[in-house]
Design a protein around this nucleic acid. Structure first.
Lengths: 259, 259
DNA sequence: ACGGGATACTGGTAGGACCAGTGTGCTGGA
DNA sequence: TCCAGCACACTGGTCCTACCAGTATCCCGT
């Protein structure tokens, strides 16, 4: 048996290699061009037949590369479209997809998702409270008013308005990572708890309770009381979902209640 | 001009459609099998030539589907390997990649990443403090001791030991989403600040300072003082990176200091 | 019994072919 | 002159065949 050389940190200096495949070279070159800004949103890639010439590979290889880029949310191909694939801009779609895949593969449960959501959404609320200006404050208040109206319509409309409210708040945080993670965890939590809850829709009492709690931390946001707003947002999540969790899971969540 | 019908929430009821492509059907069927547990890590997919029979599509289509699955971290193909592609288990690799893409595409700066890291890593530290058992505590303390030793060796060894310490702590939090996000933001922050800092490596004083600060919140962890540990961890990040940020960026970060 | 080569697979790549769309530009009619 | 409408060039989507370079297995000869 041969011994791999070791670095000073004590870890093997050799890493497992994977054979370099032709399409990976195509992917990385195009990716690099996008990351470096040589290709920006709206730009068009050459056609597949052009690319096979430029890269010196077959069309199948080019297509595999384009499939990967498309699956990563970097480009989009449309049949019959002159000019080749379109370069897309930033979107939380890929991040959301990756987080969802991670959660489903790892058998992430509702409790862990709610925990994560308490952290990221709470922080987003705090930042929104401390940093909002007139226009973003107006957007949040308008979204809240829309929730009030929707509560009298249907539970679906209320749910949609609720989503809009959370979006307005997390957008106001000014941190796109936090808002993307908030968005993901909100969707995923809704999805996971839908079997138990969504069937019947939120009953009116629950909608009123949600309105009251959201209103409470919106007040804290208006008053620029960041920590209190975060506290209330976390408490809101805890109370809303706590009933469906086990005692042990609730105990974990309680750790995060105090901010 | 025709008007799209609107739902009660006031948003268009029509969503943009994309033509369903054959490979997408293959991807979704295999994905579904993996998510539902019918395929678990280590299982083998049929060979490409078998799959083209089972799905009734050409080999090129099967290969495009396999490339997408592989790029999503769900499977891996190896030439000459009987049994077809291997189904992989959960890994933070794909999530890290997606977050990295998101950050690079969105021109996410160091300040925003550090902000995100203060949130997720701080919460992970708090959970670790409140929830650790003997073995995980021992792992964290061992990692800290390794940092002390490595500080006398080289800045590379110290950096590696530092990473191991953070890994031990976030693993102890028991929330894989938080630890994956911590891991990503740590790597990304290191990457972004490397041009300025890594060139010369951390000077010994800075290593000692890091040791002192990490030691401080490790003490809080040992004492199960979750909030204080989180506070110290956030402060640690703020102090370590604050010097490289603008006044405006520091002001944002200060919002998150108090927990 | 055992070593080594033939064999039957695997994925990686190339190249050709056809189809259904989409724009564009040209042509013919008003 | 202007415009409607058709032909054409080109796109991506899909299929097919073929070949190569690996790997694992099995069987045969020693």
């Amino acid at each position: 048996m041969t011994v791999a050389p070791r670095s000073s940190a004590g870890r093997p200096a050799f890493t497992s290699i994977t054979p370099v495949r032709a399409y990976e070279g195509v992917v990385s070159q195009i990716e690099e061009a996008i990351f470096e800004g040589r290709l920006v949103a709206g730009d068009r890639l050459p056609s597949e037949r052009d690319l096979m010439g430029q890269f010196g590979v077959s069309r199948g290889t080019v297509r595999e590369a384009l499939r990967v880029l498309e699956s990563n949310g970097l480009t989009r191909s449309r049949p019959g479209d002159p000019g080749g694939a379109t370069v897309l801009g930033q979107s939380s779609g890929r991040l959301t997809k990756a987080l969802t895949t991670f959660a489903r593969l790892g058998q992430i449960g509702a409790a862990e998702l709610i925990e994560f959501r308490m952290v990221v959404e709470g922080s987003a609320v705090r930042l929104a409270a401390e940093l909002h200006d007139e226009s973003s404050l107006a957007a949040m208040e308008a979204a809240f008013e829309a929730m009030k109206v929707a509560a009298d319509e249907s539970s679906e409309a209320f749910s949609a308005a609720d989503v809009s409210f959370h979006l307005a708040v997390s957008a106001c945080s000014g941190n796109s990572l936090l808002s993307a993670c908030s968005e993901f965890s909100r969707d995923m939590v809704l999805h996971l708890t839908s079997e138990n809850l969504r069937d019947s829709g939120d009953p009116p009492e629950r909608m009123q309770e949600t309105l009251r709690r959201h209103g409470a931390y919106l007040h804290a946001i208006v008053a620029r009381e960041g920590r209190r707003a975060e506290q209330l947002a976390r408490q809101d999540l805890f109370d809303y979902y706590g009933g469906e969790l086990t005692e042990r899971e609730r105990a974990r969540l309680e750790i995060l209640l105090m901010v």
